[in-house]
Design a protein around this nucleic acid. Structure first.
Length: 277
DNA sequence: GCGGAATGTAGAT
DNA sequence: TCTACCTTCCGCT
C-alpha cells in the first residue's frame, strides 16, 4: 500500500526498531547480497523519506535506497526469524526485531551525492513540509504551483508526477480532487492559486493522518456512513474514501454514479457531478 | 491452478 | 503510449 504516508511511516518504524544500533543485514533472495555483506554488522544511523523513496542511513557506508513500487512490501516481526525465502530481497535484524522487504522496484546501496540527486529530481513532499511553520510549509508548496500553473497537462496527471509533487499516489490524487470539487481533467494552468493552496494544505493534513494511522482515510466526519444515516461501508483497501475504487457506486454526497477511466496508466475515479471544471 | 489487478516507475519507441 | 519489472491476493474454473 505504498503512497508517501507509508514510506514516511516506514522511516520512523525503522528508527524505532533499529536506530543507533548495529544490525544484521542479508539478502535471502540474493539480489542484494553484495551490498548486504558491506552493511552487515554496521549501525543504522538514520532514516529519511522523500515522496515514495525510503533511505536507510549507514554512515560512511552509504544509504540503502528503497522504492516499493506497486508491489513492494515491508514486514516487521520479532524473533525467531522465519526461514529465509527466495522472495525476501532484504532482511535487517537485531536481537529484538526483524524487517523483511519483498518485491521492491529499487533496493540499492547508494552514496550521499546519489541520494542528493534523487532529492533534487523530486518535487515538494507534503510530509516534508515544516510542521510548525505554516508560512514555510506554504512556500514549499509553491514549488509545485510554479509547474502546475504553467502546464496544460491535466491536474490528475500532474498530481501523479513525482517531479511536480512527491508522495501523492492514485488514492490521494482521486480523493483530494474530490474533496475540492475539482474535475480531474482540468488543465493545471486553469487551477486557481487559492485552489492549489487549499489542495496543498489538505494533502499535508491527510497524509500526516495517513502516517499516524498507517492507512488512507479521506472522508470528513460529517460524511461518514454513521453521520449520513447510511449502512456501514467496507473499503477493501483498508481506509474510508469518497471515490477511489468506488466505480459505478453512488457518490456518498450526491448519489451520482462514480466514474472511472484510465489516466496516466492508472485508474482514475471521480464524481462527474461534484467535481467541476 | 490460472488470469487479472493492485496505493509505481523507468526506459524504449 | 507501450512494456518490463517485482509479489500477493482474489475470483473463477
Amino acid at each position: 500500500m505504498p503512497e508517501g504516508h507509508t514510506i514516511h511511516r516506514l522511516a520512523a518504524d525503522h528508527i524505532d526498531r533499529f536506530g543507533g544500533r548495529p544490525v544484521r543485514v542479508s539478502s535471502p533472495q540474493g539480489k542484494f547480497s553484495d551490498s548486504a555483506a558491506l552493511l552487515d554488522g554496521r549501525v543504522m544511523e538514520g532514516a529519511d523519506a522523500h515522496g515514495k523513496h525510503l533511505f536507510l542511513g549507514f554512515g560512511g557506508a552509504g544509504w540503502v535506497h528503497v522504492h516499493l513500487g506497486l508491489f513492494g512490501k515491508v514486514h516487521f516481526g520479532a524473533p525467531p526469524l522465519p526461514p529465509p525465502t527466495d522472495t525476501v530481497r532484504l532482511r535487517i535484524a537485531d536481537d529484538t526485531a526483524y524487517m523483511d522487504l519483498r518485491g521492491p522496484t529499487t533496493c540499492a546501496l547508494i552514496t550521499e551525492p546519489e541520494k542528493q540527486a534523487i532529492h533534487d529530481r523530486l518535487g515538494p513532499d507534503p510530509l516534508r513540509a515544516a510542521a510548525d511553520d505554516p508560512e514555510a510549509a506554504e512556500a514549499y508548496g509553491e514549488k509545485a504551483w510554479e509547474r502546475i500553473s504553467r502546464s496544460r497537462v491535466t491536474v490528475a496527471a500532474l498530481l501523479m508526477d513525482q517531479k511536480v509533487i512527491a508522495g501523492v499516489g492514485n488514492v490521494y490524487r482521486a480523493e483530494v480532487l474530490f474533496r475540492h470539487g475539482i474535475d480531474p481533467y482540468r488543465a493545471g494552468k486553469d487551477l486557481g492559486h487559492d485552489e492549489w493552496h487549499a489542495v496543498w494544505a489538505d494533502l499535508i493534513g491527510l497524509m500526516r493522518e495517513g502516517v499516524r494511522n498507517n492507512r488512507i482515510d479521506t472522508v470528513r466526519p460529517e460524511h461518514t456512513p454513521e453521520a449520513m444515516g447510511r449502512p456501514p461501508r467496507v473499503d477493501d483497501h483498508g481506509g474510508e474514501v469518497y471515490v477511489y475504487r468506488r466505480a459505478l457506486l453512488p457518490c456518498l454526497l450526491c448519489g451520482t454514479e462514480i466514474r472511472t477511466a484510465p489516466l496516466a496508466a492508472r485508474n482514475l475515479f471521480w464524481c462527474p457531478n461534484c467535481q467541476r471544471d
